[in-house]
Write a protein that binds this DNA or RNA. Structure first.
Ligand code: FES
Ligand code: FES
Lengths: 141, 141
DNA sequence: CTAAACTTGACCATTTTAGTCAGGTATATA
DNA sequence: TATATACCTGACTAAAATGGTCAAGTTTAG
């Protein structure tokens, strides 16, 4: 199981944004330089973050992005959902009664993977952007 | 983040094995039929499980595999480790002082991903094959 | 002797990932 | 109003990972 760059970068970029957006909008160029993420890639990510109303954009010179919510109200779940970083542990379709093996009942490990999924998602639901800010105050770049 | 088939199948197959190996060794053919997993793929998986001393093999007609330990002592961690299903959330090399961005310090989200990794691994360390057996007694196929 | 079952290693199609690239449009400011 | 800055959009792609298959063995019960 691994975390993809898209999810990782989205969170990184938002933490960066949250630190600096109180004064001016933050340009992707700045985030790119500070965090070492390709600017073209960031554009893809922010397009989704914007669609999901996590950030607002300001176009033109001196433009950039600003958070659209209080950092306390932006949970990792919201970020991941926005960029399609999803936790998938079961193989089967959850709604279906059928198992991943095509049989009529769920497979013998289905419950286990379901528990796991909940376990992981709980972590994402608990953590907010705010938590990450506090957590890193000392280590500003 | 998603669980790969290799990890999922390994656990599935071992639960199946644990149920039936008290009487006779269980052939991959049987597991394949019961669990709907390709026999060729199972062979790859069991080769690794054997190397890691989770199962023993008995060759020849009427042969098959048997657990090499008490189900209570086989944790998901052990199984996943055996088949190289690893949890990877950080991007950087953990031992290194460098960050994932190539900079001299760890990135602003490093601690978060590290926490996540621990969170997930805790789940795997707690669950044993025994737990899964009990959990599914009613739903035998 | 032979069929069942493990053993080993190579091979491969498909999908996913992690981006790049090219061409826009909007707007602050000089 | 010219222009540089920065957002916006969609297409494209190389490389890696995934999820297997296939072939050619060896071992051993019966
Ligand atoms: S994972 Fe849901 S039935 Fe197997
Ligand atoms: S994940 Fe470790 S430094 Fe970024």
């Amino acid at each position: 199981m691994k975390l993809t760059s898209k999810g990782r970068y989205a969170v990184m970029a938002l933490v960066d944004l949250a630190r600096f957006d109180d004064i001016n909008p933050v340009s992707l160029r700045d985030i790119s330089l500070r965090q070492g993420i390709s600017i073209d890639y960031l554009e893809q990510i922010f397009s989704k973050l914007k669609k999901n109303e996590i950030v607002k954009s300001i176009r033109g010179t001196q433009g950039g992005y600003v958070l659209n919510k209080n950092p306390n109200d932006i949970k990792l779940t919201n970020i991941f959902h926005a960029v399609d970083e999803k936790v998938k542990t079961v193989q089967c379709k959850k709604e279906s009664k059928k198992g991943c093996n095509g049989k009529a009942t769920k497979c013998i490990t289905h419950n286990l993977w379901d528990e796991l999924e909940i376990h992981i998602n709980t972590f994402f639901e608990r953590k907010s952007l705010k938590d990450l800010l506090n957590n890193n105050k000392e280590t500003r770049i």
